[in-house]
């Protein structure tokens, strides 16, 4: 069930990323066109591109947590690599700690901090200067991507604890 949900979320995010990335390219190409061919440069392309990058960056990053592509240093892990097995409880514990930190980051800064920010901007009715879109809508990508990160981290935690049980059964 979880895996099906996960694949569903993967596909949705991939589609959104494709749309955002190609949208940003088209937006900037449109900026060039309006300037040279129509002789009337557009005032809004700059803002669209900037907001697009915030959305692309945050949504892509949350999708990246699902695929575990984020860069890490991990000296302890490298040290343990040649000494104990991958499924040793110590290694599993380490993975859970790391996952816990990701969860805390997503829950506190992205979800709580991000939602506060969204509600503050909406309460005070803030809109962007050129497009006039509510800034709350721009910032809403923070809690959304936080929730996605929490979902992926939860799935990974279930997976890891499964390995923990398997190890306990053998030992």
């Amino acid at each position: 069930m979880c895996q099906a949900l996960r694949r569903r979320l993967d596909r949705i995010l991939e589609s959104i990323l494709v749309i955002l990335m190609s949208g940003m390219v088209l937006n900037v190409l449109w900026q060039i066109t309006t300037r040279y061919l129509l002789g009337d440069p557009s005032s809004v392309t700059e803002e669209i591109a900037r907001f697009g990058l915030i959305w692309l960056g945050m949504l892509g990053a949350s999708y990246g947590f699902g695929r575990k592509v984020h860069l890490s240093v991990g000296l302890v892990d490298e040290f343990l690599d040649s000494r104990i097995a991958k499924d040793h409880p110590l290694r599993i514990g380490l993975e859970l700690v790391s996952l816990g930190c990701v969860g805390i980051f997503a829950a506190l800064i992205l979800v709580v901090g991000g939602s506060n920010l969204v509600s503050l901007s909406s309460e005070f009715n803030q809109v962007s200067a050129a497009l006039g879109v509510p800034l709350g809508a721009v910032y809403s990508v923070l809690p959304i991507s936080g929730a996605i990160v929490l979902f992926y981290s939860g799935l990974q935690a279930i997976e890891i604890s499964g390995r923990w049980r398997a190890w306990g059964g053998e030992g």
Binding site: V28, E46, A49, M58, I109, N116, V138
Partner: peptide, 25 residues
């Protein structure tokens, strides 16, 4: 709460610069 909101704001505004736009392209 103020600290969390501030960090969220700094993350979003940290990406809101036109000099970063060339990177994805």
């Amino acid at each position: 709460d103020v600290a969390l909101t501030t960090l969220a704001q700094r993350m979003a505004t940290g990406l809101d610069r036109f000099t970063l736009l060339a990177i994805p392209f």
